[in-house]
């Protein structure tokens, strides 16, 4: 191959007829499409930016302020792609609304975790940063989110690509390193945002607990907390004037 890169983020955006200014300064990004649809209901006059490769984004207004919402990937590799598109597309503040497993007994299904930093167990970020790099979230965004939610825990989130290899040895090791929750996205999301020097944070609703074994993926408690996360997190837009 003689070209410097096969497809750049701009190539990809423009292949979808994207034009500068399509995205807002603020984006609220979910992983699952149905969560993104609930977020879509929060904004007025949404205009679809694009729907391609499984990602769909819309930009509209919340309380008169432009905001972009959409689904930004299920796992670290596709979240890296979606996050890079947002960064290159002009978004400066990215709030990710996701889910996680708790690594502390007291953090239960329906609670919230704000990722202050991430422990990189993913396979994608090594293409962006050195092995020693620790991705971090924006302190100001974190504090603003913390003010909006009760039952919120701040700390380090371990991102893994191997859901079915969350073994005792591996999990206890990351707990000893300070992780309070586990997901499959945050390290990639924060790393890309950090690389592009964008303000970003991840608010994660707890879906299960690795310590107690509680599984809440389909529980009403989880659904309700997920809905509340979407409803209340938009208030942060008013704080970002």
């Amino acid at each position: 191959m003689n070209r410097a890169i096969h497809i750049s983020p701009k190539d990809l955006l423009y292949s979808m007829q994207f034009k500068d200014g399509d995205f807002a300064d603020i984006a609220i990004v979910c992983g699952q499409p149905q969560r993104a649809m609930l977020a879509l209901e929060k904004i007025e006059n949404p205009v679809k930016n694009f729907s391609a490769f499984g990602y769909t984004f819309w930009t509209g207004k919340y309380n008169g302020r432009p905001v972009t919402v959409g689904n930004g990937g299920f796992y670290a590799p596709d979240s890296a792609v979606a996050t890079e598109l947002l960064c290159v597309g002009g978004v400066n503040n990215i709030i990710r609304l996701g889910s996680c497993g708790s690594l502390k007994k007291e953090i239960v299904v329906g609670d919230y975790v704000i990722a202050e930093k991430a422990l990189r167990g993913d396979g994608v970020t090594k293409y962006y940063v050195d092995e020693s790099y620790i991705p971090t979230s924006d302190i100001d965004l974190n504090n603003k989110l913390c003010n909006l939610f009760e039952n919120t825990y701040k700390g380090m989130v371990w991102t893994t690509d191997a859901l079915l290899k969350e073994t005792k040895e591996i999990v206890n090791d990351v707990i000893n390193k300070g992780a309070i929750a586990v997901d499959m996205i945050t390290s990639a999301f924060l790393t890309i945002a950090n690389v592009y020097k964008k303000k970003a944070t991840a608010l994660l609703v707890v879906s299960d607990n690795l310590i107690t074994g509680e599984l809440g993926f389909s529980s009403i408690k989880f659904f309700d907390a997920e809905k509340k996360m979407i409803d209340k997190s938009f208030a942060i837009i008013d704080e970002l004037l």
Binding site: Q32, P33, Q34, L38, S218, F223, K227
Partner: peptide
Amino acid sequence: FYSKPGRIQRILY
């Protein structure tokens, strides 16, 4: 049936 993404949320919310 109940695992289908968004189905439960459609009624709940």
